[in-house]
């Protein structure tokens, strides 16, 4: 018997988070995320990749069809069960990760654990320190987000998501606005936590990232998907991706989707 998917969409219609709940962004979505997967989801900007992640994180329900998180439908869960499920998924938003500017970096990272355990930052033990060390933010911990480079913000947000020790990490376009140094950090860091890092108890994390360019993410043991014209396409593994005849899939492999825009 195969293990139960962590996230499963069945003929689901994903709605827009920002423009109102009735606007469909992705239709007929059937997609499963299994434990240990590393998904890379491509698509042009504003096609609904963020909406897909917010729905997969349980922040909104699909307009139609079914979404199961850890085997349970969202509508079948009570508040406590929904919260427990939500804490098993870490969501990191695009373009700065939506940090709280009035808090220091350490307080930002510690906030969810302090809130859920009802404790002070000092009472979290070494957890916050370990996550800050893992993400290379220890020396910046006393600063506020406005005092550090914007390219580091999403890194702080991933530390904040990791402090709850999630099983699944959904990261929206981590390489957006990254310089080559930050991009290198992400491409080294994510595989290390996918395998299981000693600083976070060595447990592997299932990862889903979105991108507008497949090229930095080409590696074996990854699965690729595509959102295009309100449709989801499963492009398979690296070998399948390299043989795809999907026009946008090929454009994202060359990093030239702007040309496709003009052709459209």
């Amino acid at each position: 018997m195969s293990p139960q998917p962590l996230i499963r969409f069945l003929k689901a219609t994903v709605g827009a988070t920002e423009s109102g709940p009735d606007l469909a962004r992705i239709r007929e979505l059937t997609w499963s995320v299994e434990a240990g997967d590393f998904w890379v989801i491509g698509g042009r900007p504003r096609v609904g990749k963020t909406d897909l992640l917010t729905t997969a994180a349980g922040l909104q329900r699909p307009l139609e069809g079914e979404c199961r998180l850890f085997g349970s439908r969202l509508e079948d869960l009570n508040d406590a069960e929904r919260l427990a499920n939500r804490l098993r998924i870490g969501l990191v938003f695009e373009n700065g990760g939506r940090l709280f500017n009035e808090l220091t970096i350490e307080e930002n990272v510690a906030l969810p654990v302090c809130y859920h355990r009802d404790c002070l930052v000092e009472e979290t033990g070494t957890l916050v320190e370990r996550v800050l060390e893992l993400t290379g933010l220890t020396r910046l911990s006393e600063l506020r987000p406005a005092e550090v480079s914007h390219t580091l913000h999403q890194r702080i947000a991933v530390a904040r998501a990791l402090v709850l020790n999630p099983e699944v990490l959904l990261i929206d376009n981590p390489l957006f606005n990254s310089d080559s140094r930050q991009a290198g950090w992400w491409l080294e860091f994510l595989p290390s936590i996918a395998k299981g890092h000693p600083l976070i108890d060595g447990r592997g994390v299932t990862i889903v990232v979105t991108t507008t360019d497949f090229r930095p993410w080409l590696a074996i043991n990854r699965r690729f998907g595509l959102v295009h014209r309100q449709r989801w396409e499963d492009l398979g593994d690296l070998q399948n991706l390299q043989q795809t005849d999907h026009p946008l899939g090929r454009s994202l492999l060359t990093g030239c989707w702007n040309d496709l825009d003009q052709a459209d």
């Binding site: 988070t17 917010t54 994180a57 922040l59 919260l83 804490l87 870490g90 938003f93 939506r98 709280f100």
Partner: peptide, 13 residues
């Protein structure tokens, strides 16, 4: 407008 409220929900707050 900056999505911080959604972020709180994502953190279970």
């Amino acid at each position: 407008a900056l999505g911080e409220v959604e972020q709180l929900e994502a953190l279970g707050i």
